[in-house]
Design a protein around this nucleic acid. Structure first.
Lengths: 148, 148
DNA sequence: CTTAAACGTTGCCATAGTGTCAACGTCAAT
DNA sequence: ATTGACGTTGACACTATGGCAACGTTTAAG
């Protein structure tokens, strides 16, 4: 199985497979006399593990740890769970932040009439100096601030 | 006002201020005879605009457009609103994706007892080929036999 | 007046993860 | 034997930011 077939089988591009090898995420595989990489079932399985981990948003560094735990038959499931929980916590934090900015933006949008006139609370909100808002800007901020 | 003061006033690091200038997001400012950049109120205001836009998650490319709209006194607020709506849609999509993977992960975590034994549904879930989960894999989950 | 600290300048490297392209070697089928 | 599809490495790009180095400037103290 050469790299193209492994890529098709795993859903990871040849480029990325080489990259994962280059950063030591995967051990170098066997080569043919001509230097072609040779993959067997075990390596394709590992690629699948990496792919699913990536799909769940794990960083390559964390996947490095996960692969270590996967290979470690003496692992403690508590260690895996701890790592996963930490990842969930970070996801929650990311979601929270995105929702916060989404809501702020939504608020600004709701107050923009969106016609052919230049007057625009969205632009005003971005232009406003929060620390020393003047009266004009203050009107907008009064409704739509809460930033950070 | 030199770059350090402008940085303090705007909350953007000197490094980033230079960067924004280098990519043409901001026009080059005046320089002293010695080559020091000189900022006045107007430029600090622009930096504030950029900062708030970044805080709302706009990319520098979009901020480029927003700055153009800001400066364009003949803008149509509909254009701003359209851009903001698009950004909200993308935020919604990002949030949706994060929540999806968060839920998948949460599901796995809930089924992991998290003790000192190696048996771990999280690792199994990552190792399992979802498209063709064979009996062998099921055995592993049931019995808790190790990797591979 | 000199010196040192604190600041400015440019430029290069690094991050994470992926794509694209080039220059070149190899394998398989015609 | 040629061609085309594939492999190899390397370089560069992207986003947005941080850091460091080498070097110049300004300012305050001695």
């Amino acid at each position: 199985m050469n790299i193209g077939e492994a890529a098709t089988a795993s859903g990871i591009s040849p480029k990325m497979i080489r990259y994962y090898e280059s950063i030591g995420l995967m051990r170098p595989v066997q080569r043919t006399a001509a230097g072609y990489r040779v993959y067997d079932y075990h390596e394709v399985q590992t690629l699948g593990f990496i792919k699913r981990s990536r799909e769940l948003g794990f960083s390559l560094e964390r996947i490095r740890t996960l692969l270590g735990l996967w290979e470690d038959t003496a692992r403690q499931s508590a260690d895996v769970k701890k790592l996963a929980r930490k990842h969930i916590d970070e996801l929650d934090e990311d979601i929270r932040k995105l929702q916060s900015i989404r809501d702020q933006l939504q608020h600004l949008v709701e107050h923009c009439h969106g016609d052919n006139r230049p007057d625009c609370p969205i632009i005003d909100g971005l232009a406003a100096d929060k620390k020393t808002p003047d009266v004009h800007v203050c009107d907008r901020q009064a409704v739509g601030s809460a930033k950070q």
